[in-house]
């Protein structure tokens, strides 16, 4: 077992290199890179003065110059190895778009994503596990039907569209919530309690949109797994032998039912670093999701790669952790 996990850990680096190399290569093949964007901006920029720059053509020499500036003048393998060498030294390069070290960009945004991701994760697991258990036990009752309807309605709601509507009606027109942002403008002047309130006030609408779709899946997974196990012989035997129902559920059935949820946890970790681009966009929350996708749109490759480094490391460790959890919960599972 120990060897297995050791091996899993050792496999992280090659996988990491695989991911980054693949994406790195892709960045070179996407038509329209930072170069084109830069030229385009300079040429289409609306300037009242100096209109002469607007419509001129681009010479080969200018292209070569810009290529060097954006680091696109070297073949992929060389450029990749250079990049990797810097990553080892915790240098993720400089963003073309923000012109700041990518590491700073990420450290500015990671807390935001961690807060939202953490709350969302806690919220979903905190709601879904008990709800799933309750639904399994009260299968086919009014409670089961009502909650099913509720979570499926929630599931069907596209969070991004809901966000757009909530902003207009609850934030802009009713003025119950702030329209956007992670914290208010006067955040630094607030007392600790004030900060918490301010954060929570800003978080309500985005959290609703983040979480609303995620309840259904986990709840139903929990419920179905638990029902499978409740029907299994070992639970029947336990109940027949006089174990209380509560113990039967919590001790015997529940543990087995948590296995698929555990596998899901590994994937859930990405919410910490990935967030939801659409929701971050709609609520103007400067999190990792927004950074990642904006940098793709902007062809800001150092940032794309930087976000990828963080998210892939988290996901890779997350997968190992979820395997560990499986082994921990289910002793029958043997990893060789």
């Amino acid at each position: 077992m120990r060897d297995y996990f050791l091996r899993r850990l050792l496999l992280i680096p090659p996988t990491f290199i695989g991911v980054t190399l693949l994406v790195f290569a892709i960045t070179r093949f996407v038509p329209g890179g930072p170069l084109e964007r830069a030229i385009m901006e300079a040429r289409t920029s609306e300037t009242r003065r100096g209109g002469d720059m607007g419509r001129s053509s681009t010479s080969e020499e200018q292209l070569a110059d810009l290529k060097a500036y954006y680091g696109l003048d070297k073949p992929i393998p060389v450029a990749y190895v250079q990049w990797l060498g810097k990553v080892v030294r915790c240098d993720l390069g400089t963003s073309h778009r923000f012109n700041e070290p990518v590491r700073d960009l990420i450290t500015q945004r990671l807390p935001v994503s961690l807060v939202y991701g953490g709350i969302t994760l806690a919220l979903t697991y905190g709601v879904c596990i008990p709800l799933g258990i309750a639904k399994a036990i009260r299968h086919r009752t009014g409670f089961d039907n009502a909650t099913s309807a509720l979570i499926f309605f929630g599931y069907a709601v596209p969070g991004y569209a809901l966000g757009a509507i909530l902003i207009v009606f609850l934030a802009a027109r009713a003025e119950w919530f702030p329209m956007s942002g992670f914290v208010g403008e006067n955040f630094s002047d607030l007392s600790i309690w004030g900060k918490v309130v301010d954060l929570a006030h800003h978080a309500v609408l985005p959290l609703v949109c983040y979480a609303i779709t995620s309840f259904a899946f986990l709840t139903m997974l929990m419920k179905n797994q638990l029902m499978d196990n409740l029907a299994a012989d070992f639970v029947r035997t336990a109940v027949a032998k006089g174990v209380s129902f509560k113990t039967a559920v919590l001790r015997h059935a529940l543990r087995n039912s948590l296995i698929p949820l555990a596998t899901h946890l590994g994937a859930s970790l990405t919410v910490f670093v990935g967030g939801s681009y659409l929701i971050e966009f709609i609520f103007d929350i400067n999190g990792m999701g927004l950074l990642g996708v904006q940098s793709i749109f902007d062809r800001d490759y150092p940032s794309v790669m930087g976000v990828l480094v963080v998210s892939s490391l988290v996901l890779l460790t997350g997968n190992v952790i979820s395997d560990m959890l499986i082994a921990l919960i289910d002793p029958r599972v043997r990893f060789k």
Partner: peptide
């Protein structure tokens, strides 16, 4: 693992 991390939008 490799595949699931390639940014979708890309």
């Amino acid at each position: 693992e490799i595949w699931s991390q390639v940014p979708f939008f890309f």
